[in-house]
Design a protein around this nucleic acid. Structure first.
Lengths: 221, 221
DNA sequence: GTCTATACGCCGATAGAC
DNA sequence: GTCTATCGGCGTATAGAC
């Protein structure tokens, strides 16, 4: 039973490292020291492995976004939404990096991801609505403003990792980049946020950055 | 002399249509009715074709962003920046769609695109600074606010087409989607924009949308 | 400049023994 | 469940004739 899981995990690791395109079934088998035949005993084809990984991504992201949702939303929890979900984007970065190609070759995957995207934007809009109820956010003037904001958050969210990777092709992506991404997301909302709410949110980020710096300095992690 | 150019154009068309990964040298030659050997007479390898296309993209984008820059910036020209540059993103959409993979396999391309990105963000920041001088934009409170805004604009800009493609996998991307994208970019700046400036900018978009609707209704285009 | 022909390697996938 | 062996296809790229 173990090999099925090992295949999935190796596939995820390799694809995150080198991009989905660079990783084939033979490569996965090689790296695990198993035979191609064995791999094809566990999976019908390559697509199926990716689909299994996608299902994890889908579930992880939804969980990260709806976790801890009881109203009112505190600044700490709000920053937490962003940081947790960016963490998910990082864990499955191969998918966001090569998304278009993956979706083009697998209609079912395309439909499912389109569904996730639509759900995410709706959910983000819901969170913003809750913030307005909490008086932590002022409503934008235009009636479509909330949705537009949600879309911008989603686009920045789902492309932040790629942006970092492209900015410095030879550099690695670190946790502080993720925290910086949260700051970036917060900046979209900043003009509408209650000042003390915003300040508290930023404080969480500063704290996280400090924690990261300490961990980086102390290799006993 | 003609074939070299035809190869580049066919490559761009095919890749835009089906994604860079789906288009090989043999496919390009086939589609043009020329031989693979002929293609390799004109280009050292596949990478070289992509690089030639990239050079056009690079030049087109820079031109679109620095065109018509004399101060002060009118709302019409400002909307024009966005619309023109999104048009460029559309014309080279294969590149933005498969960017990460392309850059991973070609270090020179990666370096050049990183340079373009850095230049773009600086230039956008410069435009925002000019808007502040013009009193069309109020300066954000945080000192890093302008740069963050420029980065968010860039991320939404460079990923808008993909967002549309993924939102409706079976649908085509139309000009009105691009105009909607400009609205999306404008929404990032909206809270900082002078109200009459913003209104004038939006009016340009409405006019463009109307023009598009008329052209779509009248097939004599 | 353009063609035909072809080499080479890789990858996805299957057959069939153990 | 796992292996060995292998097939077929495709994509890049080259050699050499015209």
């Amino acid at each position: 039973m173990g090999n099925r899981k090992r295949i999935v995990e190796m596939c995820l690791d390799l694809m995150n490292e080198e991009g989905s395109r660079a990783v084939g079934t033979s490569r996965i088998a090689d790296e695990l020291g198993i035979s191609p035949g064995n791999l094809y005993y566990h999976f019908k084809n390559r697509e199926e492995i990716v689909m299994v990984i996608y299902e994890d991504l889908d579930a992880d992201f939804r969980a990260a976004l709806v976790e801890d949702v009881h109203a009112p939303i505190s600044p700490e929890r709000f920053a937490g939404f962003f940081l947790r979900t960016l963490q998910v984007a990082w864990e499955y970065r191969f998918f966001f990096g090569g998304m278009l190609h993956l979706l083009r070759r697998d209609e079912e995957l395309a439909a499912r991801y389109a569904g996730l995207q639509a759900w995410a934007i709706d959910t983000i809009e819901g969170i913003l609505t809750q913030l307005i109820k909490d008086r932590s956010l002022t409503r934008p003037k235009a009636k479509t403003g909330l949705r537009s904001m949600a879309i911008n958050l989603w686009i920045v969210w789902s492309n932040w990792i790629r942006f970092i990777q492209v900015s410095d092709p030879s550099g690695e992506v670190r946790r502080d980049h993720l925290i910086q991404g949260v700051g970036q997301l917060l900046d979209i909302l900043a003009p509408y946020l209650d000042p003390s709410f915003e300040k508290a949110g930023r404080r969480v980020l500063t704290r996280e950055l400090k924690k990261f710096a300490e961990e980086a300095a102390d290799p006993a992690s």
